[in-house]
Amino acid sequence: MQATVGDEIRVHGRTVGSAERRGEILEVRGTDGRPPYWVRFTDGHERLIYPGPDCEVEGHRD
């Protein structure tokens, strides 16, 4: 997985009925766009994540 600052990350719910979470990648701490990523989620919380198979990165729109 590779990302750049400003990309959106979506974390799909792991169980039936779990909500999907969306956030903006604020910082890429790995090399060549690789994780970990510092993310601000739509609820305002920020945290460092190492995305798993339940995550997708979408390029930011200018």
Rank of each mutant, 00 (worst) to 15 (best):
V5F: 08
E8N: 01
I9T: 01
I9N: 00
I9V: 11
V11Q: 04
V11G: 02
V11R: 02
V11A: 04
H12Q: 14
H12M: 11
R14A: 11
R14W: 12
T15Q: 12
V16G: 09
V16T: 10
G17L: 03
G17W: 09
A19Y: 09
A19R: 14
E20H: 11
R21D: 05
E24P: 07
E24L: 08
E24N: 06
I25N: 06
L26A: 10
L26G: 08
L26T: 10
E27R: 12
E27V: 11
V28N: 05
R29G: 08
R29M: 15
G30D: 06
T31L: 12
T31D: 14
G33L: 03
G33M: 06
G33W: 02
P36Y: 12
Y37C: 03
W38A: 00
W38E: 00
F41T: 00
F41L: 06
T42K: 02
T42F: 04
T42P: 00
T42R: 04
H45K: 12
E46F: 05
E46D: 06
E46A: 01
E46C: 09
E46V: 01
E46R: 10
R47S: 13
R47M: 08
L48Y: 08
P51W: 09
P51K: 05
P53R: 14
P53I: 10
D54N: 15
D54F: 11
C55P: 03
V57K: 00
V57C: 02
V57H: 01
E58F: 04
E58C: 05
G59T: 07
H60L: 07
R61G: 14
D62G: 13
